[in-house]
Design a protein around this nucleic acid. Structure first.
Length: 907
RNA sequence: GGGCAGUUAGCUCAACGGUUAGAGCGUUCGCCUCACACGCGAAAGGUUGGGGGUUCGAAUCCCUCACUGCCCACCA
């Protein structure tokens, strides 16, 4: 074995073996498989460290369940990522000097398909390299034929139920992406703008002042609103305003949504370009003027301002208002503006004909499932309430996007007649005036899973598919169903749906998780996953988001190259705290790598001991009759591993792999390496040493099996090195998770007691050695009273001598003495240092100890004489306190005795 | 504006009503000791954010204040 784990050489060997182990051995029992689907990464580029988390945490769970003999499946795949992907590809084209607007729809789609193929391959390869156990024969892509079919089927079903409709609504329009966005796809930025106070003249004399941050929208005003209780405006009721610049006559209306306290108390109402104004406009039946177009330029109704970009129009309108004395004042004002969550450009609220989905029936199902059955179960639990609250306030979902990359809406329009269908146009539409609305025939739109041959109403074959594509999250919301072939009742769908657990970052709880639940419930009657684990977001060591511009991005591939995939996996899992964001720096992976090295080296030591055994045939299995040959140290370690196995299982099952890993880390390094292996070394001369070595090997085997889900590469590589020496016969990943060792509890207790005394003694001596400034080669002489009472024989004392670099001697009356007690004062230790020694310091030490003990004794006496305590506390707690008091008294007696001796000898 | 989470050692976090609050990293000191210097040993470091309450007993439960982060809403 090399003295370092060469991960770069070792890693590639294991990948092909792991790809075969999905679902594990053929299921013999009836236990339901543990099923997860991957949160499909966007095909925008390569995987970042957040993706690594999304995949490594589930992989640990999948591997864990496989090792417990439960069939386990994880389905990989990728997401076409609509706007996000189109944005990235547009940028890429631009960097190559290609303007995407000069490409035809088909040409651009071809570029995107090509891009998707490349990144898909790259992403799947990265997943494989991270060691993820997935069934790559079931790999899906949200735009492949299976998923697309599910999308069309779901759409048609919802359409037929009347839940999907087309209509003119105020929506979020990204001018750069040239598409509508849903409410969840906008983000809010604080901007330092200005608040402008405009003077609106009243018909018949007088004026009213309105405040606005967007003066250019005044061209679209159709009313001025005031609060009905605002006494300043009681007299204005029923009067009209003549809108400056364009001289439109608009009413003054009253609406309770207007806050009297803000600005001037009167608000210009622009139903075409503001969400609140749109709502007010609906209620008051106000006309709508669309003065900003989808291209971000002022439209024809904007009159002389037509064709100007919004910012330029604003400036010109301000100039004109000022010149005509309509601008009273302006003041600095911080407010929020919506931006596109993908391209970060300003979102314009505007009226547009879009496809929407009524969410109420779906929402009700999700609320009922959550309230009645607690489904899905959230980790951490407080997310459940957030989810419920969000559902309660859910609005209709804007489904259509005016981009190219995505699922084309499965609706066809009949072009046979140019006759307009009057009910498609509300009276306000006639005033939109931009001609942007499609002219549809009188035939009903045809929703169909397959391209229809002809119009069912008129028989015409002049059909045109709706040009829009679906929100990328529509296909995502079907993912846990579509990957298994839904709507067909495939064997996979029957066996694996609903899935067991969904793991992803909390940032997409509403965008994705909630929608999957709603769609799953509505379309299949079942919540698509029993549990949801929402992990925190990865941030840098200062808590900032990782971004390319800040230069604080951690590329998982770089960590893998520098420290190994296991270090990446270990470091990420250890950094996870349920419900909290994860702060990472490149240094976060140092101690992870160190652990792997430690594991490697400890294994190397054990292998070396195995190979030294003669004859060449080492013990294959630890002899069962432990009581005949095992040492208390062995029983102690067995007790430790039993506790570890128990905690490990418990934490894994309650979805806290970080706690599980912490427990393994501490037991392996702190108990197994630091103490047990060191003790074993000191037992080499024992004639049963061969048995000890095989026990040590089997204990290592337990650790390897438990650690395998987290650090598969190094553990598998170790089992390979051990070859026939290790009891692990199959591929480690399929080796059964260890059960606690079946050893009588009194033996375990004896072992624990032995270890407790030994460790305390050794640490006391080591501490004193450091205190005295002794060199590690200097032996320190020790006398130990009452040793035999604790059953310590010569082998035990040899172990202590070896660990503490000391030598046991007969008591000496003449030598310098340092006294200590251990085991709560039951054992007295006398040390004879062969060096000068500061008696004054020792005296001070005892005095301090005594003071501390006095305090403890007083406290404990008070506590134990408190009838409130003795009457109410559980008996074992009282017993524990009694024991503590006993120990303190014993120690105090010894220490005052030593102190007296010290004072006598120094005087 | 509404809501959620958090505040414990220099840093990241444990401790899930039991009385002397623990790890890892970092720091300091001593060691290349035959698995490992990616290591070993030793040590320093805390009024558990402030205040009040419940309890025999509070980091833990309740109230309150302060601060931090996030989500939702969007006052023009």
């Amino acid at each position: 074995m090399e003295n370092r784990f060469s991960f770069l050489e070792a890693e590639p060997q294991w990948l092909s073996q792991w790809q075969k182990i999905h679902l594990g051995a053929p299921a013999n029992g009836t236990e339901a498989p543990f099923v997860m689907v991957i949160p499909p990464p966007n095909i925008t580029g390569s995987l970042h460290v957040g993706h690594a988390l999304d995949n490594i945490l589930p992989d640990c769970l999948i591997r864990y369940h496989l090792s417990r003999g439960r069939p386990a499946l994880r389905v990989p795949g990728t997401d076409h990522a609509g706007i996000a992907a189109q944005f990235v590809v547009e940028k890429h084209l631009k960097s190559q000097g290609v303007d995407r607007n000069r490409l035809s729809r088909d040409e651009f789609e071809a570029v995107l398909k090509n891009w998707a193929e490349t990144t898909k391959t790259n992403i799947l390869e990265q997943l494989v390299k991270m060691g993820c156990v997935m069934d790559f024969t079931r790999t899906r892509f949200t735009m492949d034929s299976i998923c697309s079919r599910a999308v069309r089927h779901a759409f048609k079903h919802l359409f037929d139920k009347g839940l999907i409709y087309q209509g003119d609504r105020l929506i979020n329009w990204c001018v750069r992406c040239h598409s509508a966005l849903s409410d969840l796809e906008t983000e809010w930025n604080s901007v330092k703008g200005r608040l402008y106070y405009l003077r609106y003249p009243l018909e018949g004399g007088g004026e009213i002042v309105v405040a606005t941050t967007r003066p250019e929208t005044m061209l679209g005003d159709s009313a001025v609103a005031v609060n009905p209780n605002d006494s300043r405006y009681f007299d204005f009721k029923g009067r009209f305003v003549i809108l400056p610049l364009i001289n439109r006559r608009i009413p003054i209306i009253q609406d309770h949504r207007i806050e009297a306290g803000f600005g001037a108390g009167a608000v210009k109402v622009t139903p075409g370009h503001d969400p609140l104004d749109w709502a007010i406009g609906q209620d008051h039946q106000l006309p709508i003027y669309k003065i900003i177009g989808e291209d971000g330029l002022m439209t024809a109704p904007a009159g002389v301002y037509q064709g100007l970009a919004v910012a330029k129009a604003r400036q010109k309108i301000l100039d004109d208002l000022k010149q005509q004395n309509f601008l009273i004042k302006e003041e600095p004002y911080a407010h929020n503006t919506a931006v596109c969550y993908r391209c970060a450009q300003v979102v314009e609220p505007l009226i547009s004909k879009q496809w929407f989905m009524k969410m109420d029936p779906l929402r009700d199902l999700a609320l009922k499932a959550y309230q009645d059955n607690g489904e899905p179960k959230f980790h951490p639990p407080h997310w459940g309430e957030l989810y419920r609250h969000w559902l309660q306030n859910l609005k209709d979902w804007c489904l259509s996007r005016q981009i190219i990359w995505g699922h084309r809406i499965p609706v066809w329009h009949c072009k046979s007649s140019s006759k307009l269908k009057p009910e498609n146009f509300s009276k306000s539409n006639s005033e939109l005036g931009t001609g942007n609305l499609e002219q549809f025939s009188s035939c009903h739109p045809i929703c169909s899973e397959e391209t229809p041959a002809s119009c069912p109403s008129c028989g015409s074959t002049a059909l045109e598919q709706d040009p829009d594509v679906l929100d990328t999250w529509f296909s995502s919301s079907l993912w846990p169903m579509s990957v298994f072939g839904w709507p067909d009742q495939t064997p996979d769908f029957k066996r694996f749906y609903p899935t067991s657990l969904m793991v992803n970052g909390y940032d997409i709880t509403y965008l994705w998780v909630a929608r999957m639940v709603m769609m799953g419930l509505y379309l299949t009657g079942r919540v698509p996953f029993k549990e949801v684990y929402l992990h925190g977001l990865v941030r840098d060591s200062q808590g900032r988001k990782m971004s390319k511009s800040l230069g604080n991005v951690i590329d998982p591939a770089v960590i893998q190259n520098e420290r190994g995939t296991d270090a990446l996996r270990f470091g990420l899992i250890m950094a996870m705290q349920p419900g909290r964001d994860i702060y990472l720096s490149k240094d976060s992976f140092v101690s992870a790598q160190n652990f792997n090295t430690k594991l490697w080296n400890a294994s190397r030591f054990i292998l070396q001991e195995l190979s030294k055994l003669t004859p060449a045939a080492p013990v294959k299995e630890t002899p069962a009759n432990l009581t005949h040959w095992a040492h208390p140290a062995d029983f102690w370690m067995i007790g430790e591993i039993n506790k570890t196995i128990q905690t490990f299982n418990q934490e894994m099952l309650r979805l806290d792999p970080a706690a599980a890993l912490r427990c393994l880390y501490g037991a392996f390094w702190g108990s197994f390496c630091d103490w047990y292996l060191e003790i074993v070394k000191l037992r080499r001369l024992n004639d049963r040493y061969g048995n000890t070595v095989s026990l040590m090997r089997d204990l290592l085997g337990d650790f390897l099996v438990c650690l395998q889900p987290f650090i598969p590469y190094v553990t598998h590589e170790i089992t390979k090195e051990f070859n026939s020496y290790l009891a692990v016969k199959t591929l480690l990943a399929l080796h059964p998770s260890p059960a606690p060792w079946n050893v009588k509890s009194d033996l375990l207790q004896q072992g624990a007691r032995w270890a407790s005394i030994t460790k305390e003694m050794v640490m006391e001596i080591r501490s004193l050695r450091a205190d005295l400034g002794l060199s590690p080669t200097d032996e320190i002489q020790v006398h130990w009273q009452n040793a035999s009472n604790h059953g310590f024989n010569s082998q035990d004392t040899a172990i202590i001598q070896g660990l503490a670099k000391c030598r046991f001697v007969e008591p000496s009356l003449s030598a310098v003495k340092i006294r200590r007690v251990i085991d709560s004062g039951n054992i007295e230790l006398t040390l004879y240092p062969a060096t000068t020694w500061d008696a004054a310091r020792e005296t001070a030490r005892f005095r301090a100890e005594l003071e501390e003990l006095d305090r403890s004794v007083n406290r404990l006496k008070r506590l134990l004489s408190n009838t409130g305590f003795t009457g109410k506390a559980p008996p074992d707690v009282i017993e524990q306190e009694r024991g503590r008091l006993q120990g303190c008294l014993q120690r105090r007696e010894k220490f005052s005795d030593y102190l007296k001796q010290l004072e006598q000898s120094s005087s």
